[in-house]
Design a protein around this nucleic acid. Structure first.
Lengths: 286, 286
DNA sequence: TTGCTCCTCACGTCACGTGAGGTGGC
DNA sequence: TTGCTCCTCACGTCACGTGAGGTGGC
């Protein structure tokens, strides 16, 4: 018969935990002195202690271990199998997450090695809700004219909205339907959020009303600075996506979070812009 | 300027957490109304919020993120690199642990599939401290005579100990130096723990005094039952070890935890026995 | 006035470690 | 008497979720 300290050394479990197992009813000492409260364990209890330690080592909670050991010392095969199968799925999930996290940390370290300084941008994975927008879509002839092109599109869009009596909300969203890098024939869409139930009050709209779909996994980046340096955060986003083993899975969205890009024909100096790029995991090369 | 609810939706961070970041000083609202306590955030703060979320997503603690963001908004390259390198090592460690855990869960599931019921034994990995023992080592001619053989060895051992005036302690430890399965010429050692400073008081001992080395990683199993069914727990232990991608790395030890195996020539009926097998990870097949 | 949002305070999670303050047995 | 062990009670960990109970603005 062992005092708690001896039993602790024997089973390599801290005294604190033996008391905890006692309290949870997982492992009651063979005898407890009612006067002193001293716990006395028998050598036969070592097997049960080891069972607890082993199950817990598989990542089952003490609650689960308790359930499993509840009826005398017999394990219910069905329940045990169920719990282990569940646990296996959990661990596999955890492994995937850890691996993604490792990839992200390594991507960041590489980035620091290469550039000598940390990226000024932060990429965050999030989900994006669907929104209803009024939009105009057209093709810009060259990359140089994209700025003016969008300015004109937004201009006509607001004009048309006013004409048919729909109140635009925020933000503006520019979509880049051309996904690869190209210098000509860029398929652009300028959109502005409108109420989900908006209908033209008068006249025929010369824009389309549609619903931008939700994005389950969007790599997003918030940038503050002038439009003419937008290529830097866009490149950072694309690099990050590639570095983490993901690939783009839809048009890039550019949200103007600090209000309209142009007011009275004047471009905002340092607008806050959120880039949203739908992504999915790249297939592993087989 | 955003109220906390809007900013929460914008950054995909719960209101609770925005308040928490405020409290920790990680992200103070651009303005807090001193009368109502309302927090007001500016769109420019979204970048900082995303930085916090991104760093936290890498598994850094909020404390670490706070340290990194402490001086204005600038990241210290050296510290950032240090933290990420540390974090990478941590994640790699966690991955190894998860993979071992997964292997253990899968081994258990396979075991249930094959036998139709869970193993009555629990294998636990632990460390074993070195102990000083008096021992006799000899070779048993056949597997059938191991029982008698050990009984005689322990008998002479206790006799010799008494003769030279050393008090034996507990437990008895039988070591199996023959590691592969064989039916003849089994190299056995019977040992009993003695005080670390024990010296013969008189006469010449015909046993050896040595120190059993510590075991960093021992697969151990506690068994209660007669000696003649000891092969079952031994097989279970060996199978478990193989299933988890480990291999034996030293002689198997058999500890008699419930006192001497034989008292007055009579074998204990259901002794409690702990098996300890030193193991190491198997090299992956290249 | 009714919802809606915001506020603070505080408990619960989970498997532990680490005290404080006190007692029993050699 | 002095160490050593044991006892109970309770706080801290960490990033949150989830109330209770109350207030401000349209």
């Amino acid at each position: 018969v062992f005092k708690i300290g001896d039993f602790s050394r024997l089973g390599q479990v801290s005294v604190r935990m033996l008391r905890h197992y006692d309290q949870l009813g997982l492992l009651k000492p063979g005898h407890t002195d009612p006067w002193t409260g001293y716990r006395y364990y028998t050598i036969e209890q070592l097997a049960r202690l080891n069972r607890i330690v082993a199950m817990n080592g598989l990542g089952l909670t003490l609650q689960q271990v308790g359930d499993l050991l509840a009826r005398d010392d017999q394990l219910s095969v069905a329940r045990l199998r169920g719990m282990l199968t569940l646990r296996r799925a959990e661990i596999e999930q955890e492994l995937v997450e850890k691996q993604l996290q490792l990839a992200a940390v390594e991507a960041r370290l590489r980035q620091i090695e290469q550039e000598g300084k940390p990226s000024p941008y932060e990429v965050v994975i999030k989900t994006v809700e669907p929104v209803t927008v009024a939009s105009l879509r057209a093709t810009a002839a060259t990359i140089g004219e994209v700025g003016f092109f969008c300015e004109r599109l937004y201009g006509s869009l607001y004009e048309s909205l006013a004409r048919v009596g729909i109140t635009p909300q925020e933000p503006e969203i520019t979509l880049y339907h051309t996904q690869e890098y190209r210098e000509t024939d860029l398929d652009m869409e300028t959109a502005v959020v409108i109420p989900a139930d908006a209908r033209p009050l008068r006249g025929e709209p010369d824009f389309t009303i549609n619903r931008l779909p939700s994005i389950d996994t969007a790599a997003t980046l918030v940038y503050q600075g002038p439009f003419h340096t937008l290529q830097f955060p866009i490149l950072a986003l694309l690099n990050w996506v590639a570095d983490c083993g993901r690939i783009p899975d839809g048009p890039l969205r550019e949200l103007h979070l600090s209000g309209r890009a142009h007011v009275d024909g004047v471009e905002q100096e340092a607008p806050v812009i959120e880039l949203q790029l739908p992504v999915r995991m790249a297939e592993e090369a087989a």
